[in-house]
Write a protein that binds this DNA or RNA. Structure first.
Ligand SMILES: [Zn+2]
Ligand SMILES: [Zn+2]
Ligand SMILES: [Zn+2]
Ligand SMILES: [Zn+2]
Lengths: 171, 171
DNA sequence: GGCATATATGATATGGAATAACATGACAAG
DNA sequence: CTTGTCATGTTATTCCATATCATATATGCC
């Protein structure tokens, strides 16, 4: 099957971005989880880092580095690009946040704690982003890589299209 | 429509980037193909567009827009960003070139003429890029999308890792 | 506590990617 | 010849990202 510690399923809430849900708890538990994991693993969830994670949990869409930076400035943190990028680097490295390559932007991870190869669905109308998981390395691509002797370390899987809400509205 | 006429297979030469091959013919046939398709479909393969495609066929790796721009300048074409971006837009829209989101860079398509959802393997050491195809929309992600009511229009599938050559050299 | 070391932040500067907006040129249709 | 369309050229600006140096803050050891 897919993942080692806590395998995910297609219906286990992976599509937060497209559905109604208890958003306040969504943010709170996200932060709680991060705090727990950081203290468990000796990582330092400093104020800037915590704030950036909070911002990203707040939205269920991707934020660009400069949007993040603007908000950091408003909150009294440093206002130069490296401030945002360093916080993002930390969060991405430790799996709290993912980068959406297609958008050059960032989203909070929807499956904190689980080891996973994330996959994303990006609505090109409303820019909502939903995270699910991919098994790319085990599918066609994995076979091709194996055949070629290419060693996969990381995969980027992003689907662009129209989310259910926008499809509905368009009717 | 560029049609479901010639589906690809996992072993049909999709890994050009990692293997020795007749590179001169590689470029020539690439350009011939493009010319043929353009005149068949009423597209205009103008000098800039042709030059950019040639450059990308020449390399088997991704080139950034500004690298392309530099060479265009050397060849006497316009030297401002839009010159390169417009040519690239044309080539990407018509399937002659793909954008590698992970690198913010561009490669010539290795399967010209065939309708396909490309997938890429990117070596993080030598930056070689090999194109193969993905069936993402039919795999786990496709199922999740269907379940969520998300309509996939396009997929980005990019695997980062180490190519066979670099693995070998490292021994 | 005091001090050395590592880590995190602040601030400056620069480079690279991408697009908006406007002007000009080539060319075909009317 | 005029008009419309498409491609190109040019200017300017915005957004994304990193290198570098200086300062502060935490942590571990004496
Ligand atoms: Zn995730
Ligand atoms: Zn939408
Ligand atoms: Zn292709
Ligand atoms: Zn390599």
């Amino acid at each position: 099957m897919t993942s080692e510690t806590r395998p995910m399923q297609a219906d286990d809430g992976g599509l937060v971005g497209f559905h109604k849900h208890d958003h306040k708890s969504c943010v709170e538990t996200g932060l709680k989880n991060a705090e727990a994991r950081c203290s468990a693993e000796g990582l330092r969830l400093t104020p800037v880092r915590r704030k950036v994670l909070e911002m990203l949990l707040q939205e269920h869409r991707a934020l660009g580095a400069y949007a993040i930076l603007d908000r950091l400035r408003e909150e009294g943190f440093g206002s130069q690009p490296p401030v945002a990028y360093r916080a993002l680097d930390f969060l991405v490295e430790n799996g709290f946040v993912h980068k959406i390559e297609r958008l050059n932007a960032f989203v909070a991870c929807a499956h904190p704690g689980a080891s996973h190869s994330p996959a994303f669905m990006i609505c090109r109308k409303c820019e909502a982003v939903a995270e699910t998981h991919s098994a790319t390395a085990k599918g066609v691509l994995g076979a091709a890589a194996k055949a070629a002797g290419f060693e996969i370390e990381r995969t980027v899987v992003e689907a662009e299209g129209i989310c259910p809400d926008c499809t509905e509205k368009a009717q």
